[in-house]
Simulated scan of single mutants.
Amino acid sequence: MFHFWRTVISGPEAKVNIIGFDVDDDGQKQLKQVAEAGGGNYATVRDKSEFEDVILKKWKPSIFQLIGTQGVQLHEYVDQMERLQNIYGPLYHASEREADRIKTAVYYLKDNKLISREDGTEVSDKAEEMRILRTDHFKAIKEEKDAEAKKAHEEIDAKVQAWKDKWYKELENE
């Protein structure tokens, strides 16, 4: 006895299709219940030929399913980029505000002669170095995450396109 599960994901829903090889009556009933509970179908087959018929003819996606199948949809990609920007933006602005507060404090201390001009310049220069260092670090992380997201997007789209191409060929051969 052998079972073959095929999960089909379309949108947020998944379907569980099951093929049983040489399954007794009780086993068929159980597998059919599992498939129905998973929103899918159950089929029983006796040999490789019947298996191929079920996969290629009975369960083959329709042209409308193929057309409707997307990889990463644009709005999902944009949402992900927006979430990344929502992390990057506040970090960048907090860094800028910190640098501004330090500069303002240095001006106050110099104007009230609480520190020398040289010490004030040294503190301002260090604050600017740290601001640049943070900004460069945040940009590098953002660019790395942008590249990772783009690569994942392209890989998913390529896999979906390969799947669609395979099934388009099968539809043409009918």
Rank of each mutant, 00 (worst) to 15 (best):
residue 67 I to G: 06
residue 43 A to G: 01
residue 138 F to S: 05
residue 163 W to M: 14
residue 136 D to I: 01
residue 128 E to N: 05
residue 137 H to S: 12
residue 48 K to S: 14
residue 109 L to N: 07
residue 139 K to R: 09
residue 150 K to V: 00
residue 90 P to C: 04
residue 1 M to K: 12
residue 60 K to A: 15
residue 4 F to W: 06
residue 105 A to G: 13
residue 110 K to Y: 03
residue 37 A to L: 14
residue 150 K to M: 09
residue 153 H to W: 13
residue 7 T to Q: 10
residue 122 E to R: 11
residue 17 N to H: 14
residue 122 E to V: 05
residue 123 V to I: 15
residue 36 E to Y: 04
residue 69 T to L: 08
residue 37 A to F: 13
residue 76 E to G: 05
residue 12 P to F: 02
residue 54 V to P: 01
residue 120 G to E: 05
residue 2 F to M: 08
residue 145 K to E: 02
residue 1 M to V: 08
residue 112 N to C: 03
residue 58 K to H: 08
residue 98 E to N: 12
residue 97 R to H: 08
residue 159 K to I: 10
residue 172 E to N: 06
residue 144 E to R: 14
residue 173 N to H: 09
residue 135 T to K: 04
residue 166 K to M: 10
residue 88 Y to D: 00
residue 99 A to G: 01
residue 9 I to A: 11
residue 54 V to Q: 02
residue 58 K to Q: 09
residue 118 E to G: 05
residue 5 W to I: 13
residue 171 L to Y: 04
residue 169 K to N: 13
residue 124 S to C: 08
residue 2 F to Q: 09
residue 13 E to R: 15
residue 174 E to K: 11
residue 166 K to V: 12
residue 3 H to V: 13
residue 91 L to A: 02
residue 134 R to Q: 09
residue 128 E to I: 03
residue 98 E to W: 14
residue 98 E to G: 10
residue 117 R to S: 09
residue 104 T to K: 11
residue 140 A to R: 03
residue 144 E to L: 11
residue 16 V to N: 12
residue 78 V to S: 06
residue 97 R to D: 15
residue 9 I to P: 02
residue 165 D to C: 10
residue 164 K to D: 04
residue 79 D to I: 04
residue 134 R to G: 01
residue 14 A to F: 06
residue 136 D to C: 01
residue 54 V to G: 01
residue 40 G to T: 02
residue 151 K to P: 03
